[in-house]
Amino acid sequence: MGLRWTTLAGFAITALIALFLVVPVLLSVYAGLSVNYARGISAGFTLDWVRQVWSLYSDTVWRSLIVALMTLALTLLIGVPGAYALVRRGGRFARIVEELVTLPVAIPGLALALALILAYGGFGAFRQSTLFVVVGHVLFTLPFMMRAVIAILETIDWRTLDEGAASLGSPAWLRFFDVILPNVRPGIVAGALTVVTLSIGEFNLTWMLHTPMTKTLPVGLADAYASMRLEVASAYTLVFLIMVIPLLIGLQLAADLTEKRTKS
């Protein structure tokens, strides 16, 4: 049986979408490594642009990493117990709380940032610190961490595990560490990768929250796009890609692992 025209059309459209998504990325990689983008391949390749980006913007790379790690630490601390509390409690109250906590997903980052600035702009030291950016990132990423953990909690019989540990004399907080946390680890890993990826790429909030002293990578990118030559902007984008690719691969591996685990 030959392929139907609908299948062929589907393949063609899918291929076009893939090209539309991937080709600009490849162009950007190429531009970041080429001596002169406008003159094409004949001009040759160089790492000079990357070096220049590093000397100009390396602080934003480090800051983004620090912000992402602090965000991760806070979302773990806040989100994992919070997710467990919501699942334990259940019912209407828990749903309202969940709705509230996940509100930042539904509200544009700009509005959230504005709200934060209006509320805390007066606290100079806090406003100037990296922590202010971190708070914004936690606000935005917390729902993702909580959802990832809740999703796993819903697939395991956490109540029976908890009761089983209780019957052996384990107090509530120890049960949380001994049997709940180890068994929601796939969710925590997936949530953590998502949080770090989102934090590294966060722009909408950060653009409003940052100060000249607290620029992150995407803020630097926006700078570079507006004021630097195409090759430098591309090289900077390349640095960003190198940072997020391992995270994305990790996310995929984590997803595959959970899928395998739930299937077996």
């Binding site: 019989d157 052996l168 004399g169 180890p182």
Partner: peptide, 28 residues
């Protein structure tokens, strides 16, 4: 329950998947 010192065998066993057989038995 954690203060009553009762042994409980659950219908679904409630064994901890993150532990070995021996670790489960020794947990209490």
């Amino acid at each position: 329950i954690e203060k009553r010192n009762v042994g409980m065998v659950f219908q679904s066993y409630a064994l901890f998947p993150n532990m070995t057989v021996a670790e489960n038995v020794g947990y209490g």
